[in-house]
Structure formats: structure tokens, C-alpha cells
């Protein structure tokens, strides 16, 4: 099986269009989105028709829960005053520009999805299997902790997003954790492209792929992190038109994160510019 896994969209419908076309070209069997459809970008309603038209199955992120239920903030848990300021600008804009039908749709999304693919038990979530808004950064998440999550949820593969940076790790007993990255904004690496992930299992995996556990068996699994080049200049222009903060536009144009940096552990922050 081949699955396309999209992380946070952050209203970046332009990147979503390119990613969908890329996934179709790879003949994926199904497409999933792991939540946080809005935030950061312009015209939040524009991602919804794409998701529906292409039958992309969605998990609810913390942003979706907030927008859907019209809460006061995005539940990202920032504590720095500057981070909270920019998060609120983004949230207020998204809340104001998401129509009632789409809010209702966000409200109804599941918080997680369990799939069985080629005998492998996949758990699709937003932050972590235990909490929608939990950040699982590569540098601050021990393998013992991920093993515990996989044990508790009887999962062979745990698949999430939320941090904005893709990574994966092999766990005990041939299990795996995969963070699929996000389509919403670049990865704080100075490149303008964004990322999604293709998961290939069984006969669709590479011949030398590492196996993953399946009820005592071992199914080959390939994880492809796919860079997505899209028209970021158009996105930036639209953000300007919508009077979104220059700091957000700078991120789209340069690939460096400029706001909400306090949540980054030192290791992830060190590689960025700010």
C-alpha cells in the first residue's frame, strides 16, 4: 500500500494542491491529513474544497478544535508574550475567515485514526497519541517514551505532525514513529519548500526497506519525506493582501522561522537563523 500523509496545512492551499498532484502521480492508494488546517496563511476556507474533492481523510488538530469550537486561542501553549502575540494575530484572522460550515466540519473531525495496512497497525494522530497538542520533537523525545506510547496503544507505527519538522525513529520490536512534517510553512532550514510523507508498505516498499512489526511478522516499510516546491511568492503576495504580519511572510520567502520560536528545543532552534 502507498499512503500520502499531509501534516499541518496552515491554510497553505497552494502547497496542498502541489502535494496532492505529486501524490497522485505516485499512485497512492489513499491520502490523509493529520490536522491543523488553518493558521499562519491566507484564505483559510480554500483548503476545504481540495480536501473534500480528493477525499482526503482528516484528523483533528488543536487548531481545528479551537476554530471549530470558536475557542479563545489555538491551544499551542506558548508562554512567551511575543509568541502569544503572533499566535493570536494568526488565530483571530483564521477564526474570522473560516465559514460556519467549515467550522462545523472541523468540529466533527476525529482526534485520531487507527488503520490496518498490510497487517500493520497504524495510529494517525496530530501531536501525540495521548494529547492533541503535545510536541514530539526529535531532540526532546526519548525512545523509551515512544516505546511506551506504542505499547499503550498497541501500535506498530505512530504517525503525527504538530512540530513542523519531519523526522522518524525506529522503536523496540521493529516498531516506528514518523513525524510527517507540514505543508503549511518551511522547516526553518533556509529552504522555501515544504514537506509531506509517503508511506509505502509490503510489496510497495523498497526491496531493502527496514521491516516493521505486524503481529509477530515483519512487513517492509519505506518512509519517503517529500519536499514540495510551490508558488511561495504568490502565497506571500496573498498574505500581504490580507495584511498578515510581515514576520509570517518573511518565513514563507526565506524558509526561516521568525516567530513562535520559544517552543523550539535548543537543538532544533540552533539550526535556524533566529
Amino acid at each position: 500500500m502507498k499512503l500520502a500523509l499531509f501534516g499541518g496545512l496552515y491554510s497553505n492551499y497552494l502547497a496542498l494542491e502541489v502535494a496532492i498532484a505529486d501524490a497522485q502521480q505516485r499512485n497512492v492508494d489513499a491520502m490523509y491529513c493529520l490536522g491543523d488546517l488553518g493558521a499562519f496563511g491566507p484564505y483559510p476556507d480554500r483548503v476545504f474544497p481540495l480536501l473534500r474533492q480528493h477525499e482526503i481523510i482528516c484528523v483533528q488538530g488543536n487548531y481545528d478544535d479551537s476554530i471549530g469550537n470558536e475557542l479563545n486561542d489555538c491551544q499551542c501553549g506558548y508562554t512567551d508574550p511575543d509568541d502569544n502575540h503572533f499566535a493570536q494575530v494568526s488565530y483571530d484572522y483564521t477564526l474570522q475567515n473560516t465559514c460556519a460550515d467549515n467550522k462545523a466540519w472541523l468540529r466533527g473531525l476525529p482526534k485520531e485514526l487507527g488503520l490496518t495496512v498490510d497487517g500493520l497497525r497504524l495510529l494517525l494522530c496530530h501531536g501525540s497519541p495521548r494529547r492533541t497538542n503535545e510536541f514530539l520533537w526529535q531532540s526532546t523525545t526519548s525512545t523509551a517514551f515512544l516505546n511506551r506510547l506504542a505499547d499503550e496503544r498497541s501500535a506498530d507505527l505512530i504517525i503525527g505532525t504538530h512540530t513542523g519538522i519531519h523526522w522518524q525513529r525506529e522503536l523496540r520490536d521493529l516498531r516506528r514513529y514518523v513525524n510527517v512534517g507540514v505543508l503549511g510553512r518551511p522547516e526553518n532550514d533556509g529552504s522555501t519548500n515544504v514537506w509531506y510523507t509517503v508511506l509505502r508498505t509490503g510489496s510497495d516498499a523498497d526491496s531493502d526497506a527496514l521491516p516493521c512489526t505486524a503481529n509477530g511478522g515483519a512487513i517492509p516499510v519505506s518512509v519517503d519525506f517529500v519536499p514540495v516546491a510551490y508558488d511561495y511568492e504568490l502565497l506571500a503576495n496573498e498574505m500581504r493582501r490580507e495584511k498578515l504580519p510581515d514576520e509570517f511572510i518573511q518565513t514563507v520567502m526565506t524558509g526561516w522561522w521568525t516567530t513562535c520560536l520559544e517552543i523550539l528545543p535548543s537543538r532544533e532552534r540552533r539550526v535556524g537563523k533566529f
Binding site: N62, C76, G77, K111, R131, N133, E134, F135, I263, P265
Partner: peptide, 11 residues
């Protein structure tokens, strides 16, 4: 603790 690593529960 580095509390930003442990945001408030969302649900």
C-alpha cells in the same frame, strides 16, 4: 520544567 514542551491539554 521546560513548560513549553508540555502545553495545556486541549481536550
Amino acid at each position: 520544567t521546560n513548560t513549553t514542551l508540555r502545553p495545556r491539554e486541549s481536550d
